[in-house]
């Protein structure tokens, strides 16, 4: 597993490790749709997606993309930190053939109580560098030599 990330190790402007998914295929899309029992035809019915809905192709599920963002952040936070907040907008569509790169950049850090609170800009870019799911996130990290981030996480611990 990844090494423990402490508040003191993090600097504004740092990038967290990028998580790559793909190239994505229709098989990946239908595997996710089946696991979620999501029968929306824009994910598997090419004729419906393109002719009825006017889309460029069947679409990679937005529901899948959100968990990729959660994964890149919780992988970085590790078992001693906590992904507290994450928000994003669905701005761009992704289709079979796309490779997606989940990324995060540190935009702020503050000590609150005995813990470190890290603000990040996040997103999911395609192979052409186009951003489709821009957002922000907040991750809580332990201080070096400080107590573990409480689990279950309680925001009141930061006061």
């Amino acid at each position: 597993m990844a090494e423990t990330v402490y508040f003191e190790n993090v600097a504004i402007g740092d990038d967290i490790p990028v998580l790559t998914k793909g190239p994505m295929t229709t098989a990946h899309i239908v595997r996710w749709s089946a696991a979620m029992e999501n029968w929306h035809k824009i994910h598997y019915d090419w004729r419906y997606a393109t002719e009825h809905d006017g889309l460029p192709d069947v679409l990679i599920n937005g529901s899948w993309k959100q968990h990729v963002l959660a994964q890149v952040l919780s992988d970085w936070a590790g078992e001693t930190g906590w992904l507290w907040k994450m928000n994003f907008q669905y701005r761009g569509m992704n289709i079979p053939g796309d490779t997606l790169f989940a990324w995060g950049r540190i935009t702020g850090k503050n000590q609150r109580g005995n813990y470190g609170v890290i603000e990040l800009e996040i997103g999911l870019k395609d192979q052409n560098g186009k951003e489709g799911s821009p957002g922000t996130a907040t991750v809580v990290l332990p201080l070096r030599g400080g107590p573990a981030v409480p689990y279950p996480f309680d925001p009141a611990a930061l006061n």
Binding site: W84, M86, G135
Partner: peptide, 12 residues
């Protein structure tokens, strides 16, 4: 209907 996005807070 379109999904515009989410704001999440995770606790456990």
């Amino acid at each position: 209907i379109l999904n515009g996005g989410y704001e999440y807070e995770f606790y456990s």
